[in-house]
Nucleic acid binder design. Structure first.
Lengths: 144, 144
DNA sequence: TAAATCTCTATTGACTAGATAGGGATTTAG
DNA sequence: CTAAATCCCTATCTAGTCAATAGAGATTTA
């Protein structure tokens, strides 16, 4: 299960993606529109800023905007920030590999083989879906 | 990430699968061979018993054995018991569907569409891999 | 009948998730 | 200039979960 933080992040980013290029959007506006606790959202956006998923603009009329084109921000990008690796085990994580604590011999581990296949399958899906993909679906459904 | 409980469960079940049909195996034997805390393993096997993944035999010379053929116990079966639904969101879970707490309109949710695709991809993998598959891989690697 | 097992309930410590609070730093519109 | 509006940071709290442990009761069969 993804965390509440991940849901908030995705909703906020989709909100930004839907605005297009109309300048930075205030935290308060996003928070109210998407019903996200303001301070919590603040913390989330700060985290999303580090890897460049969003950009911040300070001062009066400041706010947040997407750090790059919506089509270049995948669901995988976002979930990795909010929830850590997509993989079901550290030993099959590509972005954050780590040996399992009590692993005897990784190359032989039959559990690992299954989890690796699972990781590849989810990563392929989540990396192929971008904010642009999602925003377009919303538009098509008439929700925008 | 899967829980430690899930790791222990999979290891214990693989151990049972590797034994074949040589009667029930004692908890202590599994615990020592696989380096799993005895009492914790006890609790795990009890949970695996409810849905029939294992069968218990009481009294002297008692122990645990697989509840059905190893080829009919998938990784998905096990992970659902130890870690709950495979889905990344309750609203895309097939076995344990639940509406998201703050969902506006599910049929339009673009986040849901992506998570649903992810769920289908992982479920397909994890349901197609059984204890038998894994045991056979171990045999081929010469680890058995 | 007693040894060896399963079964159950309760508890503990460490850690994380989700949320809140308050104030300091920075920018830029006016 | 300067002050309003923002970003930025640290600390804290509560509730819940994970992993593990303990102890005793129930059941079976050698």
């Amino acid at each position: 299960m993804i965390s509440q933080k991940a849901r908030y992040a995705l909703r906020a980013l989709l909100y930004l993606a839907a605005q297009g290029d109309t300048g930075p959007v205030q935290i308060s506006e996003i928070a109210e529109s998407e019903k996200i606790p303001r301070k919590f959202l603040e913390a989330i956006l700060l985290e999303l800023k580090k890897p460049g998923i969003v950009r911040s603009h300070r001062g009066r009329q400041g706010g947040y905007s997407l750090g790059r084109s919506a089509k270049d921000i995948s669901f995988a990008d976002v979930l990795r920030v909010t929830d850590g690796p997509l993989a079901l085990s550290p030993c099959v994580s590509v972005m954050a590999y780590r040996k399992c604590d009590d692993c005897f011999e990784e190359s032989v581990c039959a559990i690992r083989k299954a989890l690796l296949a699972a990781r590849d399958a989810t990563a392929e899906i989540l990396e192929s879906r971008s904010l642009a993909t999602a925003a377009q679906q919303l538009k098509r459904s008439g929700a925008l």
